[in-house]
């Protein structure tokens, strides 16, 4: 990492009460409080949110793209895991 650059933070915004925080992007900041300020200025300018989470990008552990086959392919042929074998009563509006 370039020492002269501020570290990178990932930004998560909760659009309104009851919803999850969603990843919206990333930004540079020297500390977490500055990251919150920057996130507020960059990502909530148009009333996009009511709550902000920030986390140092280096603190996120990600799955390896090379392992994608091993991790995700085995689920492909297990269609019985999808709830598509039930008859859904017409009265049920949202499922």
């Amino acid at each position: 990492m370039d020492e002269r650059q501020w570290p990178l933070y990932e930004v998560f915004i909760r659009a309104r009460g009851g919803l999850d925080h969603k990843h919206v992007g990333s930004l540079h900041a020297s500390d977490a409080r500055m990251a919150i300020d920057h996130a507020r200025d960059l990502y909530t300018r148009r009333q996009e949110g009511v709550s902000i989470w920030v986390v140092r990008s280096t603190d996120i552990t990600a799955s390896e793209p090379e392992e994608a086959e091993a991790l995700f392919e085995p689920a492909r042929d297990k269609i019985y895991r999808h709830p598509t074998f039930y008859d859904i009563p017409a009265e049920v509006k949202t499922l």
């Binding site: 501020w6 540079h28 300020d37 200025d41 960059l42």
Partner: peptide, 11 residues
């Protein structure tokens, strides 16, 4: 000094 501050000051 940084894009983020640019937007911060403009706000």
């Amino acid at each position: 000094p940084a894009l983020e501050e640019d937007l911060g000051l403009a706000n």
